[in-house]
Design a binder for these strands. Structure first.
Lengths: 207, 207
DNA sequence: CGAATCCTTGAGTTCCCTCAAGAGAAGTGG
DNA sequence: CCACTTCTCTTGAGGGAACTCAAGGATTCG
């Protein structure tokens, strides 16, 4: 049997699937960026993750035989590869190492969620933001260099479990304390790594 | 090769492993109850899950080749079966269906975390509590029957991402609005299912 | 250049946490 | 069985972090 896989293109803002929908397969992101999110009754959004090229999407639903636990939407024009449910099971049967790989992916995701839960429950917004900035600096720029967010601030707020207004205020305070420097709308430079680290681990607070 | 597995007994309150420790294997709960948790810098605790007989513990660390992402502690005297890291990989090699089963377990856990994140980020404490009570009623008592918490309220608070004082106040308010009835320290009866459901989904608030 | 989106700032409110003290339950030992 | 300690839970007063609502400023895009 051939491993049927179908390439699909989603425009910016297009829904890939909604929470509660029946799962018929999973996706692999080829290009673009996709967000997975939850919505509250009042419409507030919590982003669970943002996926880029090479990352799988919707695998969870395949293994637990239920509907999608969250929605997914393209943040920009994106190409995805769709795998019908059965083909994954088939792939595992052919090559058991696929299973181990998949277990690794899920474990990593679980770890990421653990951290998000920790952040939401045990840290304040400045701490979450500090951690995010430090991580982005190292993955995008390199220590001491300036870097630029790849997502709008409203999306960042939703990723950090807050709202744009709060995010904006906290960035302003960080800048006032010379922890960071803001360049235009999305540009950043970290001035005080130590200070941000202390914020991230809760041993310091903004005044 | 024999599948080495070692039975271990942990007393109430005893640590099974700490966050950050190197993972040398995983456990299966035989009896008792075990909590998995995160601690903040100031000592506040967030319980990630409470595991009972038949549930695996610490699997995540096995697959992602890193240290434990959270700590684990016995909530009462518990017997656990310990499996060295390699034996799980070996089990999967012998019987690939083990991998599928494990994938199912991880998926379920991921789903649970998704809900916890949703709760922490998008719901208020009364909503989380209402959802918890409804779930416990159906798993312990049966609709309309009274039931009794199996954990101290302080632990419940930590599971819901709040503190005992807040929990206590909200229970009192729920009782005042005749949504629930409190019997002694741990006894409950749900009087108004509809009301609690509305609280849980955010379409109603306590006054 | 105009329209639309995104971002910032202000004022006010709410939820929940902190701190503190007392009431209740449970376990221990005399 | 009763005093004792200890643990758990409740209740009050106060404060702080973050949300809502509202409006103005900045960017981006067609």
């Amino acid at each position: 049997m051939a491993l049927a896989a179908l390439e699909q293109v989603f425009e910016k803002g297009q829904l890939i699937f909604s929470e509660g929908e029946d799962c018929v397969g999973f996706y692999l992101v080829l290009s673009g960026r996709v967000k997975v999110f939850k919505l509250s009754a009042e419409g507030k959004e919590q982003i669970l993750h943002i996926l880029g090229p090479g990352e799988p999407l919707g695998e969870v639903a395949v293994f637990s035989e239920e509907s999608f636990p969250a929605g997914a939407q393209a943040m920009e024009k994106s190409r995805l590869l769709f795998f019908p449910k059965d083909s994954l099971v088939e792939m595992i049967r052919r090559d058991p190492s696929v299973a181990l790989k998949m277990l690794g992916v899920l474990s990593k995701r679980l770890r990421k969620f653990t951290r998000l839960i920790e952040d939401l429950s045990l840290k304040e917004v400045p701490g979450r933001l500090a951690a995010y900035l430090l991580e982005k600096e190292s993955s995008l720029g390199g220590k001491g260099n300036s870097f630029s967010l790849e997502i709008p601030k409203a999306q960042l707020a939703s990723l950090l479990g807050t709202i744009p207004e709060t995010l904006s205020r906290i960035l302003a305070r960080m800048a006032a304390e010379e922890l960071i420097q803001l360049n235009g709308t999305r540009g950043f430079r970290i001035l005080d790594h130590r200070g941000l680290q202390e914020l991230a681990q809760g041993s310091r607070r903004l005044s």
